[in-house]
Amino acid sequence: MTFAPYALEDLETDALTELVNIGVSRAAVSLRKMVGSQVTLSVPSVEVVGRRAAVTLIRERESDQLVAVRQDFSGAFSGRALLIFPEANSLELVRAVTHDELSGQEIVDIEEEALAETGNVVLNGCLATMANILQRPLAMSLPQVMKGDGQILFELSEEPDDNGVVLFLYINFAISGRDIRGYIAMLMDLPSLRSLKELIGEFIARVVGAGGGDG
């Protein structure tokens, strides 16, 4: 099934993937300072789907309870950013951040604080970089940690015509040999997605213009 009102063209998807990869690369540098070892973050795919489809997608991929760090953003485009992990992965991430120096109970005690800090680094790094390259300011709220399934995280309403869309960015984390997978999901309404598409179009025009010059 296609979602015509939300669909990004191939060139837009490529440009957005490139923007996000630059953002998460910068976030990886900050994370490396936190964990004290090599961090690689990559975004292999980008999808734009309706919220209902997003809930189904994540349910098919993840049977475990999910943990998410949420930050709202506003500016030329607005919405909510979520850094989502399966719960087992979230504890592994806390172990990495605390250098495996804490007991199981201590990890549980500081899990929320460590996840909020990590989410802030990744989401801020990603969105601030995107905003910078798109030449528009974005304001970010403080991070909050949430737990639940996709229906809770994506705040799916009972309305059948829920117009919210989810921009899904799949992330692979590699932290000093730990395999930690996660997702960034950006929840936006259609006007915000249209604004983002326009900014991506301007970015593509700038890149094409720069590439076509005589220098």
Rank of each mutant, 00 (worst) to 15 (best):
V97H: 08
L66H: 00
S25E: 07
L115W: 09
G164F: 02
G201Q: 04
Q135T: 13
V69L: 02
E9C: 05
E47C: 02
F173R: 06
G182D: 01
N172H: 11
I184Y: 05
C126R: 08
S42K: 11
E202R: 11
N124W: 04
A205L: 00
Q38P: 09
I110E: 02
Q151A: 14
A185N: 10
A7Q: 15
R32L: 13
V35M: 03
V46F: 03
L57F: 08
S176I: 11
L82A: 02
L91M: 08
V20L: 04
R178F: 05
Q38L: 15
N120E: 06
L83F: 15
R51F: 00
I107N: 05
V39W: 13
P5N: 15
E113G: 09
K33C: 07
G177Q: 12
S192I: 01
R61E: 08
Y6N: 14
G182L: 09
M140D: 07
V165D: 08
L153R: 07
H99P: 08
V97W: 05
S90M: 05
L199W: 02
A7M: 14
F203T: 00
D109Q: 11
D100H: 10
A174F: 07
I175Q: 03
Q71V: 02
F168L: 15
V20T: 05
G211R: 10
V35A: 00
L156F: 06
V166M: 01
